[in-house]
Design a protein around this nucleic acid. Structure first.
Lengths: 258, 258
DNA sequence: GCGCGGATTGAACCGCAGTTTAATTTATGT
DNA sequence: ACATAAATTAAACTGCGGTTCAATCCGCGC
């Protein structure tokens, strides 16, 4: 650093307490959007939200998920920051209130679109994700609500993820990976957390889709496959796939209503 | 022209007969597309086809229709020509066989999309054109055929234009402008040739949509409005609008079957 | 034959979303 | 504490589809 350029420290050297307070303040500031968002910006926001459950998101991780190079991500992050949609911390990216709102809108639209494509057009659940990604940029609020109605007001996308409400509430989910269920557990498949068409096609062919009820009747040792009893037949499934299947288990103590 | 640059004449100075023969040859050469077409290229081809019924299309006219500047059109024409999709003549642009095939595919997709939007999603016919333009780039063959089936295999778009068959046949239409019908003529509205949402909304509110049968019972003098008798009521319509409404008239001599 | 106006072309630019390559900062493990 | 690995940032480029401004071409009327 011999030349005259002075580089400010990326994160100000202020007392930790004050820093946290200021950050909180910034993150909660909810402003109306002055400029409209490009489709790519929405896509980035949505992905940050999805990855961000529980903490900040790293730019490199985002690049991997979106399958673009890191410099592309960095430039977009600069743009999002200048719009007041994200906040950078030393541990990664956080959405501001405004950014979260926009992210939820994008996610709602994406999931409604997916539901529409399967329910109305009969497209397989392994294809809808990529298709919805292509269609997303062309769809506006009106069309989205139209599809929502025609699809029968779906509450979840075909992979089981909940559709946020129009006012930006994401119903919380209390599911666990199937891989962590114990022998004898009964339950229902809630979500299938993979986007790989091959995996989805295979799971679909086994009948392992959201809503399916099962009983876990065996686990092979040494991280071996699980044996599930479904309504009409048993299926064997590897732990690798089971990690992507999230389930809600019946409570052991029945009789609690609601 | 003092400098050394030599400009070749745009159209070769060869005998007229030979020129015509070569041109014909070029226009009929049907090659598989080596490179895939961008959405914008498809849009240009489709517009050239629509405008080109009966002769070559001028670049300036194309620019007006697509609402872009002339240099943008010219550059795209260079690209289309390099792909062998169009041929320039001294009187304007012609589609080659390959270009026409692509144009018809684009038009088919656009009109299926319009029919889907009105029939399945209940979008008003005054809005579907702009909407379909936005959605077009994201739609592929598979999705298009899916929509075709779900929309009930429509044969015409909401404005009455025929949907080309998958193998690229455009059903011919023998309609005339309503403005040229004579008093006493009975017939059916075939197409409404405007894209202006206001006009379409107004015509829709009058019940003047494709399929409506009518009898022309009066024309005011000095290019005045027409009076149409519909099933349940009469409507008055200005000549300006009537020029955009194309109709097929009943033959005066009934009894000819088929 | 000449000039004029509309049509065409060329050059230089913008914005967006991506790329590669290189420099620099930050984090981590011994 | 320091070397190295990982993450970030910067710089310069691509392709597409648009723009403006300027130059040139061509047909037509006088």
């Amino acid at each position: 650093m011999v030349d005259g350029r002075v580089r400010l420290p990326l994160y100000p050297l202020i007392p930790r307490q004050e820093f946290a307070r200021k950050m909180e303040e910034t993150l909660n500031r909810q402003e109306p959007l002055s400029r409209s968002l490009s489709p790519a910006m929405r896509a980035y926001l949505a992905e940050i939200y999805r990855m961000g459950e529980g903490g900040p998101v790293r730019a490199a991780a985002l690049a991997r998920r979106l399958d673009v190079t890191i410099p592309a991500v960095v430039r977009m992050l600069n743009r999002l920051e200048s719009y007041g949609l994200i906040q950078r911390t030393r541990h990664g990216i956080l959405l501001t209130k405004t950014g979260e709102r926009e992210a939820l809108r994008a996610i709602r639209q994406h999931r409604i679109l997916e539901a529409f494509l399967t329910r109305v057009l009969g497209i397989g659940w392994e294809e809808v994700h990529a298709l919805a990604d292509r269609l997303d940029p062309a769809i506006d609020e009106t069309l989205c609500e139209r599809m929502y109605e025609v699809a029968g007001r779906p509450t979840h996308c075909p992979h089981g993820d909940p559709i946020p409400t129009p006012d930006g509430q994401m119903p919380p989910l209390f599911d666990i990976p199937l891989s962590e269920a114990w022998i004898g557990a009964r339950g229902r498949i809630a979500r299938v957390k993979t986007e790989d068409p091959e995996q989805l096609r295979y799971l679909g062919s086994l009948g392992l889709v959201p809503g399916t009820t099962f009983e876990l009747i065996a686990r092979a040792p040494f991280n071996g496959p699980l044996r599930l009893r479904l309504a009409h037949h048993d299926v064997i499934i590897g732990l690798e796939l089971a990690r992507h299947i999230r389930v809600v288990l019946e409570t052991e103590t029945p009789g609690v209503p609601s």
